[in-house]
Design a binder for these strands. Structure first.
Length: 695
DNA sequence: CACGCTACTATTTTT
DNA sequence: TAGTAGCGTG
């Protein structure tokens, strides 16, 4: 680290000297550290930015600064973690410098990879009409490989398709050997090592033959073009003079390789992140990536942002204490100039119902005091934990929207309809063909495979399926499907309403199948109506399908339309989806051991540390009000309840609790803010005994 | 060969 | 709890 300049700790005079052109208007709204970062010149820059320290603001000002300095916007690449973040950042930058920043290339790593692959892939052997598979598609394709190779019939316990895909994806994103991944995470499967390799080889071959690209391929192909194809690498890398990366703590080593390739010529890379908020290791991210950045990019300047503009000091005190238990990190302690504020509440409820009731009552109270609903959020560890609350909110007619855990695109009926569009775009899309064929009455696994084999033999000619002779019982369905596909192929591509129209045509066949397959069809039909409405906004099937795979709608609101500002609705969100956001009041529910941290993370130190960081992310979303709630008698209907149940999260240890105020809800809905010192859970001896046997 | 029935199991987070 | 693997029937 000898060639690393650390900005932290210099005198004010030195700081001022580092702000070149510090008088310019752009930087007058920044503090000294932010200004240095925003106006930094060329070369690698690492901004370690604690929660709420104006990270986004700094990055936007840096963007504006580069443009004012004369860098052409289209020569700047801005990589963010979500599409939401990219849009927000570009919109804010536009407010700052006007239309000048239009043309900046922004988006997620995956979306950017997609753009580049469409443009340069053909030269590297990837035909540019490939289709993108989402995770579910990838798992389904692996399943086909698995079945083809005969593992489905195996009597022995064999890994499920989700597991196979996870291991594959982890291998690509982290570079760990399959052996090591199995040993560390799936010791029960180490003997299957060779079978994993066989399936992965077959999966890779299938993707190639079917012209399919999965999420991991997008990154891998980008990295490989940069590393192994000098002429293409030259063309790609020369597209941009500056690369800015947000949320760097959530990148993985494959993404770091990409960045090295992109910046080999100029080293103009700025990354912003907070190692304390690294919460995506399940996607191969490692906070070591940000710790290692100075080694990867020699000559790195590090700037730390510690002044928090978001939360009151009591909220920061509790959050700082919680994260101070973390083992490995860039030490930074957040502080604020904001004075006052009340201590975060620690609310112990008797059970889930009381927790729900407390949260709803308190939300209404805050609302009456003038806090808009959209300034309030309820956060939780996993999507299903808000079920009870959602019911109560609906009963009490409080509008809300839920982020994360939205399974819209994963719903079988939505995927079914999309499969029709996909085979039109890519006739070789085996996963979609299989899905569609299995829908038809009279066609099962064997017939579906036979039909696909025949189509492959006929080089995926569009007439191949029409010529397949199906068993008599499937004759009708086959005729209908052939007619539908012919009709869809005849759709003029210039018609702007064509994607939505395509779906309408597909539904003439599909809705009937749906009615026979499910009992409750209304919600499913409503989903399809929504899908049709979204499709109306896209000019082509290809654009629609790619957008859905890379930028899935994140909340019901994305589907319903209307911007955040217009709709005064409460937000329910997983802690993950809440990252980068802030609210006036935040509730964290289910802060019980076994729930947060989740039971499965408890026996693994690294996972446990990540859970701690995740809770830190949740707490630091709050500006003025923070309440953490825990139902004490959350007796579980789930079976393996061998973790410490009915206890406060282990992260809320004595030190953290001292920074909080204990609050106990009373039965009448009011709260008692000076409760008994240590409220213990009343016990129900019979319930405990029943629980022993899982009854 | 498809399909309905039963028993079982695994259960986070997201591009 | 829901999705699915396995099995027996038509």
């Amino acid at each position: 680290m000898t060639d690393t300049r650390v900005y932290e700790g210099r005198s004010d005079a030195q700081r001022a000297a580092m702000v070149k052109g510090g008088a310019r208007s752009l930087t007058s709204e920044l503090n000294a550290e932010q200004a240095v970062a925003a106006t930094f010149g060329d070369g690698p820059l690492l901004i370690i930015a604690g929660a709420g320290t104006g990270k986004t603001r700094t990055l936007i000002y840096r963007l504006a600064h580069l443009i004012e300095k004369g860098v052409r916007p289209e020569r700047i690449l801005l990589l963010t973690f979500t599409r939401r973040a990219a849009q927000e950042m570009l919109a804010r930058a536009e407010r700052l410098v006007g239309g000048a920043c239009r043309g900046v290339n922004g988006g997620t790593f995956h979306a950017t990879a997609h753009r580049l692959l469409r443009r340069f892939g053909a030269a590297a052997g990837v035909a540019n009409d490939f289709s993108i598979m989402d995770q579910g598609d990838a798992e389904d394709l692996i399943q086909l490989s698995r079945a083809q190779l005969g593992y489905a019939e195996s009597k022995k316990r064999f890994p499920r398709k989700e597991t196979l895909h996870y291991v594959y994806s982890r291998h690509i994103n982290t570079g760990f050997a399959i052996d090591d991944i199995l040993r560390d995470e799936y010791s029960q499967f180490v003997d299957y090592h060779d079978d994993f390799l066989k399936i992965f080889a077959d999966y890779t071959r299938r993707k190639g033959e079917r012209n399919l690209v999965d999420y991991d391929d997008l990154l891998l192909f980008w990295a490989t073009m940069l590393e192994a194809a000098p002429s293409i690498a030259e063309r790609i890398a020369s597209l941009y003079d500056h690369v800015l990366v947000d949320e760097y703590q959530d990148t993985n080593v494959l993404q770091a390789r990409i960045l090295r390739g992109m910046c080999r010529r100029h080293s103009n890379i700025t990354v912003v992140g907070d190692d304390a908020q690294s919460i995506y290791s399940f996607r191969g991210a490692s906070f070591r990536n940000i710790l290692d950045f100075p080694r990867q990019f020699p000559g790195t300047t590090i700037i730390a942002l510690e002044q928090n503009y978001r939360s009151t000091q009591p909220i920061l005190d509790a959050s700082n204490t919680l994260i101070s238990r973390a083992s490995e990190r860039y030490t930074k302690t957040l502080w604020t100039k904001r004075s006052g504020g009340e201590a975060p509440w620690l609310v112990t409820a008797q059970d889930e119902q009381q927790q729900t009731r407390f949260v709803v009552d308190r939300i209404l109270e805050l609302h009456e005091e003038g806090v808009p609903l959209r300034e309030i959020a309820v956060l939780f560890r996993a999507g299903y934990m808000s079920a009870d609350l959602e019911i109560e909110l609906t009963n009490r007619k409080i509008p809300f929207e839920k982020w994360g855990g939205l399974k819209f695109l994963e719903a079988a009926h939505v995927k079914d309809v999309l499969a029709f569009l996909r085979i039109l775009e890519n006739p070789r899309d085996e996963v979609s063909w299989y899905r569609i064929l299995m829908l038809l009455p009279g066609i099962g696994d064997v017939t579906a495979r036979a039909a696909i084999d025949l189509m492959a033999q006929m080089a995926w000619d569009s007439r191949a399926f029409g010529q397949y002779r199906v068993p008599a019982r499937a004759r009708d369905a086959h005729t209908q499907l052939v007619a539908l596909l012919d009709q869809l192929r005849a759709t003029p591509l210039v018609d702007m309403a064509s994607v939505s129209g395509d779906i309408a045509r597909v539904r003439q066949l599909y809705d009937g199948l749906l009615r026979e397959k499910y009992d409750r069809v209304e919600p499913r039909l409503a989903d399809l109506d929504q899908l049709q409405a979204i499709a109306g906004g896209y000019p082509s099937r290809e654009a629609f399908l790619s957008a859905l795979a890379l930028e899935p709608p994140q909340a019901t609101q994305d589907l319903a339309g209307g911007s955040d500002e217009e709709r005064d609705v409460l937000v329910l969100s997983t802690a993950h989806s809440a990252k980068g956001k802030e609210w006036d009041a935040v509730f964290l529910i289910w802060a019980a051991d076994g729930w947060f941290p989740m039971a499965r993370a408890i026996n693994d130190d690294e996972e446990l540390e990540e859970e701690r960081r995740l809770m830190y992310v949740a707490l630091t979303r709050a500006r003025n009000h923070l309440a953490v709630t825990c139902p004490l008698n959350s007796y579980s209907t789930r079976r393996s309840a061998d973790y410490a149940i009915d206890q406060l999260s282990r992260f809320l240890d004595r030190g953290v609790r001292e920074k909080m105020e204990r609050v106990v809800p009373r039965m009448d809905g009011s709260v008692d803010r000076e409760p008994e010192p240590a409220p213990s859970a009343p016990i129900d001896l019979r319930a405990l005994l029943r629980g022993r046997f899982g009854a």
